[in-house]
């Protein structure tokens, strides 16, 4: 089941998605992290953040809206307290960071580089839940600038996490790669909204929020397809992936690995279950090596 993503060797192509698994270690032994290909931590910012006022989530058909607002303990706490607990494990460690501008992104990446123990860094260019958060991945020039600033700080593989909330993701993907991204994560949440008509109010304290879960899987798959055709891989796919069947759809469409996200809120063992189910599912189709399946969907 081993795959290689931007030179990072994963024991299998299943990761947990940022923001849906905490930092992983706090869930052991309820979850068995060593069965995952990789663990993407919740977004970390320069300073600790309390996040948005509640209510922060609302269930929708086959999914949910969230506007957590990047609650996190800050980069220092992440590097000092969390990263050391992730060293020497069977899974690969991906940090996910968000800054306010190219410089603050670069500082975060530089700090991670210094800390060590990080196999890949995902740049959250597309969190919809903080002021201005979406800008970096709806604007090709900004995306390129942020990635380039980060590139200058590290040789650790960088992944730009893209938004689906653009007319065409291809130019953003191209810009991120030009800026020096080793790979792309597709996709972050889809912007949505829920209204309580009796109260004449939004269901969430933030007016708009990010939609995730199986409801957005077809959108994520479409973006992966567009990005693959525009720039190729490697792509980390995210968006409603909850089963091994889902995972293989994305691998065929060109993703090198998948991230299980909101499904973990429903079933905290979803990522390890997806990883465990892959071999038998592949065998049932006569596929011996998962790499033989990746990107086999014809491009046109």
């Amino acid at each position: 089941m081993a795959v290689s993503v931007a030179g990072i060797a994963l024991q299998n192509p299943v990761l947990c998605a940022s923001g849906t698994f905490g930092y992983g270690v706090e869930l052991e032994p309820l979850v068995r992290l060593d069965r995952l290909g990789g663990l993407v931590g919740k977004t970390v910012t320069a300073e600790p953040r309390r996040g948005n006022a509640p209510p922060r989530t609302f269930e929708t058909p086959a999914g949910m809206l969230n506007s957590i607002g990047l609650e996190n303990p800050g980069i220092e706490s992440y590097c000092e307290e969390i990263l050391p607990r992730l060293r020497g494990r069977a899974f690969r460690v991906f940090a996910n960071v968000a800054g306010e501008d190219a410089r603050s992104f670069a500082r975060l990446v530089s700090r991670l580089d210094r800390a060590g123990g990080v196999d890949g860094i995902e740049l959250n260019l597309s969190c919809p839940n903080v002021a201005g958060g979406l800008d970096f991945s709806t604007d090709a020039r900004l995306a390129r600038e942020v990635v380039a600033a980060c590139r200058a700080e590290t040789r650790v593989p960088l992944f730009a996490k893209l938004t689906p909330n653009v007319t065409d993701p291809a130019p953003i993907a191209v810009a991120a790669r030009e800026g020096g991204a080793d790979g792309l994560t597709c996709v972050n949440t889809v912007l949505g909204m829920a209204v309580d008509w009796r109260r004449r109010a939004s269901r969430l304290s933030a007016r708009h929020a990010g939609l995730s879960g199986p409801a957005i899987r077809p959108i994520a798959l479409r973006v992966v397809d567009q990005v693959r055709r525009a720039v190729g891989g490697p792509i980390l796919a995210a968006g409603g992936i909850a089963t091994a069947e889902d995972a293989l759809e994305f691998l065929v469409a060109g993703a090198s690995a998948v991230q299980v996200g909101t499904a973990s809120f429903v079933e905290i063992t979803a990522p390890e279950r997806v990883a465990a189910d892959l071999p038998a599912l592949l065998a049932s189709a006569g596929v011996g090596d998962v790499n033989d399946l990746i990107g086999t969907l014809p491009k046109d």
Binding site: G51, T57, M64, T262, S264
Partner: peptide
Amino acid sequence: RMACGLGICRS
């Protein structure tokens, strides 16, 4: 209102 029940989703 909660999603994960484990302190992870921060809802």
